[in-house]
Design a binder for these strands. Structure first.
Lengths: 339, 339
DNA sequence: ACTTGGCACTCACTGCGGCCGAGTGCCAGG
DNA sequence: CCTGGCACTCGGCCGCAGTGAGTGCCAAGT
């Protein structure tokens, strides 16, 4: 009962602060939210909340603002996920459905997410290792040179030119193609290494060296690729977030240009299957200590194709942002999964 | 003589202002640069320069700052191109030469340019239309479905899946491949439309519908592609440029996310063969009216592969920036042209 | 015809003092 | 445990005067 009201006060503080970006005081709180108690009571609760580290005051005789810990409690226990309106869902769908290829899908989603949430949006390209092979093509380019093209079920196309030690002709290329397709079609790329490893041994002896080169190329170029690509949009939105950001803006932008950092941040949300929120120092990136990251994976089921999310100020409408990220991820997942 | 000194004064103002970012007064000018005249004389010159619109004062009783027109005169007549030091050239080379593929080259150059100039750097991917065809591959994916892969001499690979109206087999694919290669190999893509247009008529009748589909796809996907890709880096550098930027920062970032705008800006410099500078309103982009764009084309000779450049505050070290852009463009051009 | 030193003037910037008011903490009474 | 009252704090907002860099103009010098 007492605990309940305190949490209610915290929620009210977070909600008001997100709206106004100004420290919120006891009087305004008691008025705007019908808490049924007087400002004095609210003050006592606030005192307790501050004691526990959920809120703080920028200076004496100012209102309170939530701390990292306060936001954390808020997203964990005090906020649901605001459902999007029908119109919004429709807008997402119509914005995405005009996409013509994978690149287009990614670019559209990242822009959509940025516009929707008015934050910086980040979308990973579907990672190869969680895609499946749809088709592998092998063609000869010259007497000792071949081109391998791999098409995944997400529409991504990877190609690689391979120099063979032994001469190759169209017949051999066809045989390689058949072998590889037979072994790999439908397989997830993450599983490719094992499948592929045994291939040379099973093949006709005269094909072996060539096949070994080929499988080596497959592994090297498609599996062992630590840095995947990602798209970003809406950096202009960073300037929206109040002035105190101005100082750190530089370092935030710098951090966002570090692909590796972002990949880790977004990627870590990929596996969880839900929308995850990292607040302030939880990001483990010093430059982002004043920001929050809302991210999730997209793509069918347990094997997410990639991650997407937004980076914004801690002072953020979490329920809405989480809903938006989840919705976009869902549609993108369907779009890429269905195809 | 008199004219000469006035120009000298303008140069001094630009140089000092670029360094200090503060309105420069007559006294400091006469001292720091050995103009051999008294502050009073300098004042008269400044008065004249202001009359002619080359400089202006932010408020009465403050020093002068250059106008768009002043910067323009400066780059046109008063500044050479600062040669880079040996060490800097070496640094550029070593930074770029580790690149493994086209994507890597572009990403490395854009980062390099951003770090070097401490501005926002932009690099266009080599445009297809100014590349040449190295090889075209046609393979069947199904009874009515083919994959066309085109490799250009800049290492770019474009692929496209084509649904044929008539059944196709490997034999037909081979024939298509031979026809297309024969017609297009070595051709510049910009010339492709004409070359390709006559192909169906010359072919065997039963091949025609199929070939028509194929050539249609070639044209549609590879030539009529208004928006090419580009890479950007160093947006964090925008925050470096003084505080007055802060207000416009938002709109600048927004403008930079508009691919179309940027392509036009960078692309227009592509053809000229030299480094071009657009100052303030010359950019024709309202949001960029407080910035300057230094850009050039890269790639062999008259047919530039693409453009690259930097966007920064008007208050910029033009000689140095122009030198850096030119140097990076030269190395990238060699790197891609040689291959 | 330029250049120069002198001189009055302008005006952004800074620091100071005082007022205001939102907000707090504490306490005594319900 | 809640509430109204009360004294206190302190950041933000004037208004004010002083300062100094910089200008424009003019009369005198070369």
């Amino acid at each position: 009962m007492l605990e309940d009201r305190r949490l209610e006060v915290l929620r009210a503080i977070v909600e008001d602060f997100v709206l106004s970006n100004e420290p919120v005081g006891s009087k305004a709180l008691a008025e705007r939210h019908n808490l049924g108690v007087s400002p004095a009571t609210v003050r006592n609760d606030m005192s307790a909340l501050e004691e526990e580290g959920y809120i703080t005051q920028p200076h004496t005789s100012a209102g309170r603002i939530p701390t990292d810990k306060g936001y954390r409690l808020f997203v964990d226990r005090l906020s649901g996920v605001k459902p999007l309106s029908r119109a919004e869902r429709r807008a997402i769908q119509s914005f995405l459905e005009g996409a013509v290829d994978l690149d287009d899908v990614v670019r559209r989603s990242v822009r959509l997410l940025a516009q929707l949430t008015r934050q910086v949006a980040v979308v990973q390209y579907p990672s190869l290792s969680s895609s499946s092979v749809r088709h592998i093509e092998v063609v000869t380019l010259g007497p000792r040179r071949m081109l391998m093209v791999m098409i995944t079920d997400t529409g991504r196309v990877e190609q690689r030119i391979i120099d063979s030690l032994t001469p190759v002709d169209d017949e051999i290329a066809g045989e390689l193609r058949a072998t590889l397709n037979c072994a790999l079609a439908g397989q997830r790329l993450a599983d490719a290494p094992e499948v592929v490893a045994t291939l040379p041994d099973q093949a006709r002896p005269e094909l072996r060296p060539c096949l070994a080169t080929m499988t080596g190329a497959v592994l090297e170029s498609l599996v062992e690729r630590p840095e995947e690509r990602l798209a970003m949009a809406g950096t202009a939105n960073l300037t929206r977030a109040s002035v105190d950001f101005a100082d750190s803006l530089r370092s935030i932008l710098e951090a966002l240009e570090e692909q590796v950092v972002l990949m880790k941040l977004i990627g870590s949300a990929r596996e969880t299957g839900t929308v995850t929120v990292r607040i302030g120092r939880e990001t483990d990136v010093d430059a982002l200590r004043t920001t929050a990251v809302v991210a999730t994976g997209y793509g069918r089921g347990p094997f997410a194709l990639g991650g997407m999310g937004v980076v914004g100020p801690m002072r953020m409408d979490y329920p809405w942002t989480m809903a938006a990220v989840r919705a976009v991820a869902k549609y993108v997942g369907e779009l890429l999964g269905a195809d």
